[in-house]
Write a protein that binds this DNA or RNA. Sequence first.
DNA 1: AGCACAAACGGACTTTACCCCGCTTAGTAT
DNA 2: ATACTAAGCGGGGTAAAGTCCGTTTGTGCT
Lengths: 204, 204
Amino acid sequence: MDRTVLPVGAPRAERADAVRNRLHLLATAREMLSEQGADRLTMDALAERADLGKGTVFRRFGTRAGIFQALLDHDERAFQEQVLGGLPPLGPGATPLDRLIAYGRARVGFLVGHREIARAALDGSQPVPAGAETPLSQMHIRMLLGQMHLGAADLDMLAVQLTAALDGPLLLYLSAAELTEAATRSEERIAQGWQDLVQRVCRS
Amino acid sequence: MDRTVLPVGAPRAERADAVRNRLHLLATAREMLSEQGADRLTMDALAERADLGKGTVFRRFGTRAGIFQALLDHDERAFQEQVLGGLPPLGPGATPLDRLIAYGRARVGFLVGHREIARAALDGSQPVPAGAETPLSQMHIRMLLGQMHLGAADLDMLAVQLTAALDGPLLLYLSAAELTEAATRSEERIAQGWQDLVQRVCRS
DNA sequence: AGCACAAACGGACTTTACCCCGCTTAGTAT
DNA sequence: ATACTAAGCGGGGTAAAGTCCGTTTGTGCT
């Protein structure tokens, strides 16, 4: 008879049916995605195929982009585990610079693999990942920068810029065609570009 | 009786009424923009206010984002003149590095001033500026990089990355709130961040 | 078990981007 | 002038995102 109130801070855990529906919707979305591609995935169709009301879909994800963000977020979690607890140089153990390079390579691979979802997750009328206020990517880069000895610099801003330099080419500046056409070649080129960039930025 | 055909290559100049309507639509769009903000600018409303058919609006601009791209493009032209023919350090005459720094500062200012339009010009389902295949920004940065003596590097990729590092924070990674709240402070911080970044990248 | 209530649900409704296609007109060749 | 034609025009039609609100249901409390 004490821990009852907690006036704010605990928004009273998601209800069980809500969880079930959310997972079911995500699974259904993934099916449709692999069968038909991202642009054919409409909210109505998703609701119908999942046998749920349209209102439910919007309640869960807020917006169309929200669905893709949720899917991306899920896959990103697995990726993030490699980063936080995997083997060097991606995981802990290597020097910060090597980790930063490895991270960029890995992320480019991840984004190339998820380019369709990642694009669809963008939403012109919102900041960016819309879900995570500060993307995981940015936080990780920020952390590694902090472990290096760069002269007094605005590390937060640098992290934002490097995040943009890493994601930007894939999210914005390279057309879908350029990517699918020769995904492998592009991927290596972008990864190499990242390595050059951070080596320049971080050399003493 | 000779220069009649030109079978391809000259798409047969825009018709006069089309030009008139395009300009009129852009002017009307700008009015509505300053009166009501970007998200209230609907295609129907624009057509009605300009006293033209909806079909005409779409014929001219293709898509909603296209209108904002056209507006941005227009303003960018004036800006670009300063860059190509203005005074140093922005214009020709200064060292490439100084010009690059000045360019970033100027572009940050430009984007902050046009943040609403610039955001609205993004179109999830297209590369990026959708108009210019390679943004002017990227070309200019590429040119300046070419004038420096950076060891063998993939200058094209570097230009893409720097473009992303310059535009990304404003287009994607900073919420509208963060920007309007303290536009001036943010602006200076981003500009300073750019300067630090390129100095690091370009130091020999 | 029964109650109270916040959360979730569903699906009709509204709004808006974008398509289509028959009609009109500017530009050009005769 | 006249006729020809491609470009442009208009606005009704469609599809899909997002909102609303009355109804249902899970959950925590007694």
